[in-house]
Design a protein around this nucleic acid. Sequence first.
DNA 1: CCGCCTTCTACTGTTTACAATTAACAATTT
DNA 2: AAATTGTTAATTGTAAACAGTAGAAGGCGG
Lengths: 227, 227
Amino acid sequence: MTKIEAKSLVDAATERLEAAIIGGELSPGDRVREQVLAEEYGISRGPLREAIRRLEGRRLLERTANIGVRVVELSTRRLAELLDVREALEGMACRLATERISPNELAKLRAMLDDHATHEEVRSGEGYYQQSGDFDFHFRIVKASQNDYLISMVSGDLYDLLRLYRYKSSTMTGRAAQALAEHHAILDALESGDPDKAEAAMRTHIRNARIHAQLAMDKVEQEAKAG
Amino acid sequence: MTKIEAKSLVDAATERLEAAIIGGELSPGDRVREQVLAEEYGISRGPLREAIRRLEGRRLLERTANIGVRVVELSTRRLAELLDVREALEGMACRLATERISPNELAKLRAMLDDHATHEEVRSGEGYYQQSGDFDFHFRIVKASQNDYLISMVSGDLYDLLRLYRYKSSTMTGRAAQALAEHHAILDALESGDPDKAEAAMRTHIRNARIHAQLAMDKVEQEAKAG
DNA sequence: CCGCCTTCTACTGTTTACAATTAACAATTT
DNA sequence: AAATTGTTAATTGTAAACAGTAGAAGGCGG
């Protein structure tokens, strides 16, 4: 019953509920009961319902009339759909960033990748760095596109959904080294100033990640079937 | 005070409010007062607030804490942002559709374009057909992508926002003939089965529409300044 | 006459209580 | 014994009352 106290109860509840979903506290398919959650958050059902509606709009929750609210269900198909959209959106972001990113920001990105290279997890191919480092790299490029709509779509809605999958199967094992190389390729393209090349590099990277992610999910599914 | 009576008051209110915004009943920048609107729809503030929160998530409305809700403001910059996203998303949709569209659906699209060609408005370059015909053509291709996430993003959120602009400046005058030609080019690419070509054709089309739309908006703005 | 402070109004934010719908369980009938 | 129907408990849907905040209007002092 940890209380919430912030600007708006709806905002606070939204953030907290979102965090609970992304953090795995609430699993995909779980039922969300208004009364229970409202009491847990120390608020009444009104604001909580409004928070739910927001997340509903962002496709993290699904409501069936008179039945209830559930955390969105996961499937390989949905993941494939998300990654196609991600390829399109981040490809465009990278294209736009090519002409808008500052030399300063470019230097920072370069430093970031250099730093990643020193991490043991990357060289050994374990890929823990994906959790923070990868998201950070992508996020900064999206921000450099300076397209607010794009930024909010990708980093708000899309990444949230993707994070759900990351929790289910820690997808990125064994790909860290290759991913880092691809990041360098993206950065090179950005520095070259060629938008076509930049978009292509980003899309190749995401497409590779996609192949890997889906293999991992298929594997998880098969194991579930077998076990 | 036309009453609403349907599955859920929230759903009904959402649809009606959305229609009011898109239909121009509520203009961009207009304030939305909860009490007033609730009475107009014959419901109480609770459901209405939830409906507002949904549209907030879809970026049709903006809420400032303790101040109120406004219909989202329009600007050339925002339009440019939307069209960049549209290019990315519909380009991807067209790519996916290339490999998934049925011969039957292709034939229907072809028939549709043939029908458009007979319309006088198109040949004379007035372009009324844009309102329904253009949206229909694009919508069907997006649907043919069979990517539900993509479909809901484009036809749900994105088109709604774009429709706002269409109301402000009837953008597409004088471009109907060219647009139709571009539609044919897209269809040809789809039939060829080459995803790269199909994506490129769609993106070219949207980029051209974008140039035209922005010229129109700049013109409107300059007239506003002058008048 | 101008500017600042106070008060008041109107709106949004939140809670509580009530109504309606659903799903589960039990009892009765075939 | 199985199926169907009635009843009940739980949960969502809705409304209305209450609280808090921002902006406007008016009065007071400079």
